[in-house]
């Protein structure tokens, strides 16, 4: 089971939130890798591995939306669920427009997150950027 478990990447600057989400996703059977910032992600992540990206928007340094755009620009289209503590309609609209799977304002229920992650994982495998 563990062998073919999907890998979920979590990027959040908040240590507690990272750990909480990691545990939750693990109980749902995913393998989880966490990153503290956009920069950390760009340095360490193997994008081809990721089945889903849980991305916090408000972070010191490069924010989540900018990272997502950079990934798209780099040809990496990872199904992404945005989370944010600062609900902002404009941001949500922008995220969805860019092809995000979901946009979850903190605080969210486990079902909401897992449903979104599941939807992301079930998306057709990434294709090379057009």
């Amino acid at each position: 089971m563990i062998e073919d478990a999907k890998v979920v990447f979590v990027v959040d600057d908040d240590h507690s939130v990272r750990r909480g989400l990691e545990r939750l996703l693990r109980t749902a059977g995913y393998r989880v890798t966490t990153f503290v910032s956009a920069r950390d992600f760009l340095e360490r992540a193997d994008c081809a591995q990721a089945a889903c990206l849980v991305l916090d928007i408000r972070m010191p340094g490069q924010n989540g939306l900018d990272l997502y755009e950079a990934l798209l620009d780099g040809g990496y289209r990872i199904p992404t669920v945005f989370i944010t503590g600062h609900a902002d309609l404009l941001m949500a609209a922008r995220a969805m427009k860019l092809g995000a799977v979901d946009f979850l304002p903190k605080v969210f229920d486990d079902e909401a997150l897992l449903t979104a992650v599941r939807a992301a994982v079930d998306e057709p495998p990434p294709t090379a950027a057009s």
Binding site: D14, S16, G20, L24, T27, V107, D110
Partner: peptide, 17 residues
């Protein structure tokens, strides 16, 4: 709200996990 949402999110996630 953001400041409060961070711990609350973590708490909920941990508890539900």
């Amino acid at each position: 709200a953001h400041e409060l949402n961070q711990p609350l999110t973590a708490i909920l996630a941990n508890a539900q996990a």
